[in-house]
Simulated assay, not measured.
Amino acid sequence: MKKTIFTILAFLLLVLSAWPSFAGDRLLLASTTSTQNSGLLDWLMPRFEDDTGIKIHVIAVGTGAALEYGKRGDTDLVMVHAKSLELELLKEGWFVERRDVMYNDFVIIGPKSDPAGVKGSSSAADAFRKINGARGTFVSRGDNSGTHMREIKLWKQAGLNPAGSKWYMEVGQGMFKTQRVASEKQAYTILDRGTWLSKMDMLDLDILFEGDPPLF
């Protein structure tokens, strides 16, 4: 049996100051699409329910949307990956507890032919500069998710703002749909390793850059 090992980095659990939907046997969890796409929740939830008798209903959205669910009190728990924003909201009193529960890193993927020459880049910012220089098609989630926030940060580190460029596509979708579009367009994108490991056999793309500290 083929086993997939998830090295899941930087997802964080926030416990809300109010528990609007908790009725003793049901919890609402707003989680990132990356976590959902990794297959981790499908593995964890049945075991949690067997152990506790509590069913979990998952709302899979981007980090920004998940945090808004939490701020409105529309969910019991939030599992996201934008540490600085989480700490800010915790300080403001929107949440009462935050715990590190796992971690994930990001990878830059693209066409196996790598027309922009991303392989061998000295840094993630250098990889983004090469994509910009080659006008290689780049597919962005464009949805205010944790992945999208990290992508924007990397463009800033590269000294670039690709928004509005013809080669830069914002799809406003979750991670799986974004990487599927990238595969169809033979384009570059950034995604979390957990999603890549669970979906890579469905994509005509390769990891072209990984391991740089800003990707963790």
Rank of each mutant, 00 (worst) to 15 (best):
D114R: 04
G142V: 00
E97D: 15
N144Q: 09
G133I: 01
T147P: 01
N161F: 14
S140V: 03
G164N: 07
G110P: 03
P111T: 11
S165K: 11
N132C: 12
N104F: 05
G174V: 00
H148A: 08
A125M: 05
A134G: 06
I131L: 10
G142W: 00
K153A: 14
V101H: 10
A134C: 09
A163H: 03
G133Q: 13
E97V: 01
Q173T: 10
S122F: 01
N144A: 10
D105Q: 13
L154R: 07
F128W: 05
G146Q: 03
A125N: 07
K156I: 06
D143A: 12
G142M: 00
F106T: 07
K153G: 15
R135K: 15
V101T: 08
V171D: 15
F128Y: 12
Q173E: 15
N104S: 15
T137S: 05
K153M: 14
K119G: 12
R99C: 07
W167E: 03
R135F: 09
F128H: 08
V101E: 10
W155N: 13
N161C: 07
A134R: 05
G133A: 13
I108V: 05
V139M: 07
P162M: 00
P115N: 02
G142S: 03
A163N: 06
F128P: 02
K156M: 12
K130H: 09
G117K: 13
K156L: 13
G136C: 09
S140A: 14
D126S: 12
D114E: 04
Q157S: 13
G172N: 04
G172K: 05
G120D: 02
D143N: 11
W155Y: 12
I152F: 01
F128I: 11
G110Q: 04
M102T: 14
N144C: 05
M175Y: 15
I131Y: 00
E151S: 10
T137E: 01
K153I: 08
V107A: 08
E97K: 13
R135T: 11
A163E: 12
G136R: 05
R99W: 10
G146N: 07
W167I: 02
Y103N: 13
V118Y: 02
G159I: 12
M169N: 08
M175N: 14
G136A: 14
R129M: 06
G164I: 00
S122V: 03
R129H: 00
K166V: 09
G146Y: 05
N132T: 13
M175A: 15
Y168T: 01
E170A: 13
E151L: 13
L154I: 14
K166A: 15
R129Q: 10
D143P: 05
K112H: 11
G174E: 04
G110F: 11
I108M: 06
A125C: 11
T137G: 01
K166G: 15
K156F: 05
A125E: 11
I108H: 04
A134M: 07
A158L: 06
A134E: 08
Q157G: 09
S140C: 07
I152V: 08
N104A: 15
R99V: 12
I131Q: 06
A163W: 00
D114M: 01
D100P: 11
M102Q: 10
G120Q: 02
Y168I: 00
K119F: 14
G117S: 11
D143E: 07
I131H: 06
S145C: 04
R135S: 06
V118M: 01
V139K: 06
K130Y: 12
R99F: 12
G136K: 07
R141G: 11
G133V: 00
A116R: 09
